[in-house]
Write a protein that binds this DNA or RNA. Structure first.
Length: 353
DNA sequence: CAGTCGTGGAT
DNA sequence: TATCCAAGACT
């Protein structure tokens, strides 16, 4: 039996997708696409940015809230920065939210409120890299662009038995993936290969018996599918420590501090704190500070143990740092998860949770 | 290239 | 509890 051609392979996958595709709030299912329903590029863009390094399950509700509040790119571009940061709170990778706004405003300012349609033009926008540009071009416009995300890396490394470890293997995987990308139904194909990776060709215990590409899969033939893709070893996470000071005045207001635009948790709402180098540091005001507890949190590249100090301050106190927010307008849901944990610990002494 | 940048679910 | 990992981008 001769080898499958690229056309054979894409046809197998598209047939599988027609009957096994997942349903998502931003997705136009294949039958509707065939009937001429076009995706809204704004919704495709928003979903793809939210999905960067983030699970579908985590994105669903955020996507629904964002599109209800800001139905178009013009609406989003006009939103205050702090509103967008608050709505993004808890989803992580907050640079995405800042780039999201920058991108929406660039589309309004430089593109007449219409999203660019080509891979190359999309790539120029903030927060849109090679993956997202290809995804929008393919899914929203059926341009035959090749998406290469973690799913595709896994599927292709197995299909073609690429044993080079990631990330060094990325260029080869990209080339092999591009060879399979069809000229027709490029949007369905992009979603199909990612659905395959998410539901069949999973990292552990892949369901090869259900896979439309089982026949041509080189790793399956060799019995090494569960060992691919190979990955270079990653560094161990160090543990850092620090202190956060959470205070209320006698009117119930909260002493908050927004983090700098750049860096970890950039632009998010929080509380005054020390550096996370174990040094501690001066509290934002002189008071009878009480340790409410310690909060543990793990970021991508380090563990953090944060001591939570609490105090009641007299009304009218002018602290060295931070900004008072009245109790009525302080919403814990606007905090990133680390600060929400600290808030919950502080509530033992300060109330509010 | 390698480091930075969140979070929560699965195992 | 520890590790992996998810529709990556940016510096």
């Amino acid at each position: 039996m001769r080898d499958s051609t690229a056309t054979d392979l894409s046809a197998l996958l598209l047939d599988w997708y027609d009957s096994h595709h997942r349903t998502m709030p931003w997705r136009i299912p294949p039958a509707a696409r065939r009937s001429g329903t076009k995706p809204d590029p704004y919704r495709i863009w928003l979903s793809e940015v939210m999905l960067q390094q983030t699970t579908v399950a985590a994105v669903r509700d955020y996507f629904t809230r964002f599109t209800a509040k800001w139905p178009s790119v013009a609406d989003l571009a006009a939103a205050p920065d702090t509103d967008v940061m608050a709505e993004w709170a808890g989803l992580g990778y907050y640079a995405r939210a800042r780039n999201l706004l920058a991108c929406a405003r660039a589309v309004m300012r430089d593109h007449g409120g219409i999203f660019p349609a080509t891979y190359q033009s999309l790539l120029t926008l903030p927060g849109i890299g090679p993956y997202t540009a290809a995804a929008i071009a393919a899914i929203a416009h059926d341009e035959p662009a090749t998406v290469v995300d973690g799913n595709v890396e896994r599927v292709i490394s197995r299909l073609r038995l690429v044993t080079t470890p990631l990330p060094a293997a990325k260029p080869e995987l990209t080339r092999l993936a591009a060879e399979l990308t069809p000229q027709e139904r490029a949007g369905d194909y992009a979603q199909a290969i990612m659905d395959l990776g998410a539901t069949i060709c999973t990292p552990r215990n892949p369901a090869c018996g259900l896979c439309p590409w089982r026949g041509p899969c080189a790793a399956q033939a060799a019995g090494v599918q569960a060992d691919l893709p190979a990955k270079s070893p990653k560094a161990a996470k160090p543990t850092r420590t620090g202190t956060v000071w959470i205070a209320r005045d006698l009117n119930g207001a909260w002493l908050t501090e927004r983090r700098p635009e750049r860096g970890l948790l950039g632009g998010t709402l929080g509380f005054p704190g020390s550096d996370w180098d174990g040094a501690g540091g001066p509290a934002p005001a002189t008071a009878d500070w009480r340790m409410a507890g310690q909060v543990r949190h793990t970021f991508t590249h380090f563990h953090l143990i944060l001591s939570v100090e609490t105090a009641r301050l007299p009304a009218g106190t002018n602290p060295a740092r931070g900004e008072w927010i009245p109790a009525a307008s302080f919403r814990p849901a606007d905090l990133p998860t680390l600060m929400r944990k600290a808030y919950t610990a502080a509530s033992v002494f300060l109330g509010g949770a």
